[in-house]
Design a binder for these strands. Sequence first.
DNA 1: GCCGTTTTCGGCCCGACTGTTTTCAGTCG
Length: 555
Amino acid sequence: MTNREVAKTLDNIADILQIKDENPFKVRAYRQAANSIYGLDENINYLYKKGLLGDIPGVGKAIQAKIEELLDKGNLEYYDALLQEVPQGVLDILTIPGIGHKTVQILFAKLGIIDINELLQAALNQKIRTLPGIGAKTECAIINGIEMLKENKHYTLGLVLPIAEELLAHLKESEQVLNAALVGSIRRGKPLVSDIDILVSAEDEAGVRYNTANFRAVKQIINSEAGHIEGLLQYNIPFEVIIVADKDYYKSLLRTTGSKDHIKHLQILNNRDAAKDYQSEYQVYSFYNLDYIPPELREDQGEIEAAAEDSLPQLVNEDDIQGDLHVHSNWSDGSGKIAEIAQMADSLNYSYIAITDHSRSLPISGGLNEERLMAQGQEIDQLNAADNRIKILKGTEADILKDGSLDFSAETLREMDIVIGSIHSNFRLEKEKQTDRIVQAMKNENVDIIGHLSGRLLNRRPAYELDYDRILDEASKNRVILEMNSHPDRLDIDAELARKAREYNIKIAINSDAHHKQDLKLIKYGLMNARRGWLEKKDVVNTWSWEEIKAYIKK
DNA sequence: GCCGTTTTCGGCCCGACTGTTTTCAGTCG
């Protein structure tokens, strides 16, 4: 069992206990343990073997025993019994925006609704509005919410990529496999993907078949015919393994990477049969008289024309990244000490890192008031004095309040090396008001970066209404940096807007928004998205030295 | 259910917004 699966189980237990209206502190205990496990650096099986489960914050005797049972037997009696009372389908209802545990409890108790489909039927029949405390508006919100969820038949790249990489590594271990790669939308770095596609070249298909079926996360093989294996992985993620002869590998690599529009456009360009033995994708593109096109650009958005004219962008690379400008510590809702985060940043060869904890209007996240912010600054000064391998920057992720002001005084903000302004409340203002609010923040001379601009949460919450032309115009005028938030649930701003921002000469910061030190590595998702937005090194401020950034943000 | 330079009990982040009400409960961050 993986860390994620253990954490998810504890989270589900918390949900069921909350629906059953049990002691809220007990609920929180399960949630905290789950959160700790989500953020662990180590494999939980390893910790169990070493007898270190009890060292995980929030894991006491009772939860430790439950984790051990899970890891030993693959299931947990306590949890199975809870599921008898409150089935999984009831928990799924919690994913509908605006529906919490109390509402789920009422739906379950009064109408016996046990899954999303039954809920939709009841809502369409106007039965929900008859329940105590629930009216027509909520009923409508339920219908809209379910429709939104049904449209989202896609998985976030953050969920799928680690499993895909594991399956790829597993296949590569086998002797029969000559070449193998992730292909399809994963290779193109799309934030949401519908399945995992892997291309394999092999002389012996039977060996590949055997190996695929033996991968630990394979739930079911649906189809297995010549050149092709199809099935389901954990979380019901569909996967496909495409097997070709080695001489066809690079041609197939291009074809299976897609996108469909990109391939179609290529074929119109040159309809001759490219039945050659290519040694690389570069060679395939040169057959079409084109420069090599990186997978992230292959969406038929002008990349083929650019490749023909030798004017493709030199996309930003992982090696270019010099630091991270948005990281939370245990001073607010992060889990790591500043010193540990700095150490991790050093191991990633960064030269600077900004500690940007929440501000006071986010009390649930332990937002800092002026006094604590200053105290944090002193700790950072001490750390910088003790160790100069990495520069720790003093920052804040200050809330943009409803009227566009920030909840720190100008005086306090001036003390900071870097200030991110972000919205964490009032998501549903009308378009003009929401835009005014952000423009107001951008005009604030102390704001350097706007964090997660659109507020979208993939598969969960749509972006809020904004006039993006006006935003880009003002960002450019006020020399405000826009954040490319790397969290795979956000990837905000999206690639399309990033590309547009580039036209306005707006600079982008690819930030991790890490809440655990391990999350610093999430930057790879932001990088993929930045590349999909055609961004080059010069567009991305955290490819620059801190001195260069400082000179840029000094307005 | 966890945790403890107040350790075996008694605490354990909260404030704004929304919808349903007519003073409040539920949700969200």
